[in-house]
C-alpha cells in the first residue's frame, strides 16, 4: 500500500532524507517541498549531494533513511509500484542517455509503446508533437550519434515529455555540452517552465536559475544551507558558504582574492 496524502499541495516532498555510500554520508537529513508548477534550481559545489538528492527523488538511488513523496505517492514505501510512479516523473541526464541503437523517433516511441502500451499511431503522433516542441522535427530519422550534444539533450527531453510526466527532474542537463550549445537546451527548459511544468533542476547555470527558477536551493556537505527566491540566494546570499561558492562560480579567477586566505576557506567547509 502506498501512502497518499491528497491534502498536501506539494508535488515533490522530501522528508528527513539520508543517503550513505558505504561510510560516506552524502545526504545528511534533507527536507524539501516543491509545489505544483514550481521550478526549483538546486545549486552547490560538486560533492555537495545535489545530484544524489535528485536521483533519490525518482529512486534511482535508494535512500538510506527518510521519505520521498511524488504526487502524494510515497516512493520509499517498499511495496510501491516504482515503475508506475516513474512514468509520472521525467528525468534528464547529464550524459543524455539516448538509446544509441534506435533512431530519434524510435527513442521516443519505444518507451511509450512498451511502458504505456500506446498503439503505434498514437505513439508516433505524440513523438512528432514533442520533437516539434524541442525544434528537432527534421531529425526524426537520425541516429543519436549523428546529433550534436545539444540536439541529443533536446531529444532526451522530448523523450521524457512523450511519457506525459507531471514532474521533470534535470541532472546537470547542460554540463556535458559545449558552451555554444547550452542556450538551445535552456530555451527548451524555459519553455517548459513557462508552460507550468513542475521542475527540479540541478545546475550550474546561474543565469538560468536567476531568471527561470521560482526558488533556489543551495546545498553543501549533504545539507540544504539556504533556500529562497533567486534574487535573494544568488543576489544576496545570507550564508558565507553560499557567497564563497557563488563568487568562485561567477568569477573563478577572483575567488581567492575576494574570499581571503586559504585557511579561512578551509573553515568554511
Amino acid at each position: 500500500m502506498s501512502q497518499t496524502s491528497p491534502a498536501a499541495g506539494a508535488e515533490i516532498e522530501v522528508r528527513g532524507l539520508h543517503k550513505s555510500f558505504g561510510d560516506n554520508e552524502v545526504l545528511r537529513g534533507i527536507d524539501l517541498e516543491i509545489g505544483r508548477g514550481e521550478v526549483v534550481c538546486v545549486i552547490g559545489p560538486s560533492g555537495s549531494g545535489k545530484s544524489t538528492l535528485l536521483r533519490c527523488v525518482n529512486l534511482l538511488e535508494e535512500p538510506t533513511k527518510g521519505q520521498v513523496l511524488v504526487g502524494g505517492t510515497e516512493l520509499t514505501d517498499p511495496d510501491v509500484d516504482i515503475d508506475a510512479v516513474r512514468r509520472r516523473i521525467g528525468m534528464v541526464f547529464q550524459q543524455f542517455n539516448l538509446f544509441p541503437h534506435l533512431t530519434v523517433t524510435r527513442n521516443l516511441t519505444l518507451p511509450q509503446r512498451r511502458v504505456l502500451g500506446r498503439d503505434k499511431a498514437e505513439a508516433a503522433r505524440v513523438a512528432a508533437e514533442n520533437l516539434a516542441r524541442v525544434g528537432l522535427s527534421e531529425k526524426a530519422d537520425a541516429y543519436p550519434a549523428s546529433l550534436s550534444g545539444g540536439q541529443q539533450q533536446r531529444v532526451a527531453i522530448a523523450r521524457s515529455l512523450s511519457m506525459g510526466p507531471e514532474v521533470m527532474l534535470f541532472d546537470e542537463p547542460t554540463s556535458a555540452l559545449d558552451p555554444e550549445l547550452v542556450g538551445d537546451v535552456l530555451a527548451v527548459m524555459r519553455m517548459l517552465a513557462d508552460e507550468g511544468m513542475t521542475m527540479m533542476v540541478v545546475t550550474h547555470e546561474m543565469t538560468f536559475a536567476r531568471e527561470v527558477a521560482d526558488r533556489v536551493v543551495f546545498m553543501d556537505g549533504g545539507v540544504i544551507v539556504e533556500q529562497g527566491a533567486p534574487a535573494q540566494v544568488i543576489g544576496d546570499p545570507a550564508h558565507e558558504r553560499t557567497r564563497h561558492f557563488l563568487s568562485r562560480l561567477l568569477d573563478p579567477a577572483m575567488a581567492e582574492v575576494e574570499e581571503g586566505t586559504p585557511e579561512q576557506l578551509g573553515k568554511g567547509d
Binding site: 515503475d83 516513474r86 512514468r87 528525468m91 541526464f93 542517455n97 518507451p111 521524457s160
Partner: peptide, 15 residues
C-alpha cells in the same frame, strides 16, 4: 553497455 542506459530506461518506467 553503459550504466546510463539502464538508468534512462528505468526512469522512463521500464521494469
Amino acid at each position: 553497455v553503459p550504466k546510463g542506459q539502464m538508468e534512462a530506461a528505468r526512469s522512463l518506467g521500464f521494469s
